[in-house]
């Protein structure tokens, strides 16, 4: 039983990272109806920026703050430059553009920092917290704490500030929002900036666990997609729950299902996506969309 709980705790640790990337996906989807296939690569790029800052001699936490600021600006810039021209274009066009962005960012990181693996400093101490036979690594706790803080801040932003209110208005109905004087274009850019920041958190958290290299986020992206599908693409809370569930499911499947083992764990998100699409396509917390021609 203790062994099982131990696996669950580790799953939650992994799930927290998936949750933050899934949250980034959901943020963009809410505002623009776009699923950003480049989200993982943007997170990877942010992790490289953080690495660059620490390599330049900055301590970890100031480096993180700077990275988040750069990512925010970068996300807004991408919305303005890359996404804006295809706003309102058919879904196929937009998806292809984000895939192009995916390829470009991945290769650009390889060009700038080479494809060699880099060591990323772990901001959390190495030991573990022992309680009732369970041992929870401080880095796992740290990851969960950081993700919880990010979510709390987002909640405050959306529920307690005027900017957040404007953003919710745009997500609910862009035309009406524009009519009451909200600058929709800038709000969309703000949404992309926020998503890039949240994604950057996941990139920086995952880098010490996986080693930093340009293809680092490819696998994580699939878990985040599974999390967002499970929770519902239009539900930020759902994305968090989905991320945790996917993390635990993946860890348990890897530990207890012999056929899956550690190497085929990446099949778990595929199975989750397929099951959700068959049984409850809008996700656990999502609203079913009504098609209107």
């Amino acid at each position: 039983m203790v062994g099982f709980l131990q696996q669950v705790v580790e799953g939650l640790g992994a799930g927290a990272i998936y949750a933050s990337l899934a949250l980034a996906l959901v943020l963009i989807y809410q505002f623009t109806g776009i699923v950003n296939f480049a989200q993982g690569e943007l997170a990877m790029f942010s992790a490289y920026i953080a690495w660059q800052f620490t390599a330049a001699g900055l301590p970890f936490w100031p480096a993180l703050v700077l990275t988040l600021a750069v990512s925010f600006a970068g996300g807004m810039l991408i919305e303005r430059v890359v996404i804006r021209p295809v706003e309102g274009a058919p879904e196929l066009t937009v998806v292809i553009v984000t895939v192009g962005l995916f390829i470009f960012v991945n290769a650009a990181a390889g060009w700038i920092w080479s494809f060699l693996i880099k060591d990323f400093p772990n901001p959390f101490p190495g030991g573990a917290l022992e309680a009732g036979g369970l041992s929870v690594g401080y880095s796992t706790l740290g990851v969960m704490a950081v993700v919880a803080v990010v979510m709390g801040l987002l909640y405050l932003l959306f529920q307690r500030t005027k900017v957040g209110l404007g953003m919710r208005a745009v997500a609910a109905n862009p035309t009406s929002a524009r009519l009451v004087g909200i600058r929709v274009g800038w709000t969309l850019a703000l949404g992309w900036g926020l998503a890039a920041t949240v994604g950057a958190v996941s990139g920086v958290l995952v880098a010490p666990l996986l080693f930093l290299e340009p293809n680092m986020m490819g696998g994580v992206l699939i878990y985040a997609f599974a999390a967002a599908t499970l929770g519902g693409f239009d539900s930020p809370g759902g994305a968090v729950v989905g991320g945790l569930v996917v993390g635990v499911a993946e860890t348990l499947a890897g530990a207890y299902v012999d056929v899956i083992g550690s190497d085929l764990k990446v099949g778990v998100p595929l199975i989750i996506i397929l099951c959700i699409l068959l049984l409850r396509p809008q996700g656990l917390f999502g609203r079913a969309a009504v098609e209107r021609a």
Binding site: V35, F37, E91, L92, V95, G218, G219, I222, F225, A226, T229, D263, L264, V266, G267, P269, L270, I273, L274, L277, L278, P281
Partner: peptide, 25 residues
């Protein structure tokens, strides 16, 4: 069959997941 009952977006997700899953398989 499962992916096509829905919008094209999900097909992109499922196919990407398959492509990633194939190599370890």
């Amino acid at each position: 069959l499962p992916a096509m009952r829905l919008r094209g977006l999900y097909l992109a997700l499922v196919t990407l997941a398959i492509a990633i899953f194939l190599v370890p398989l």
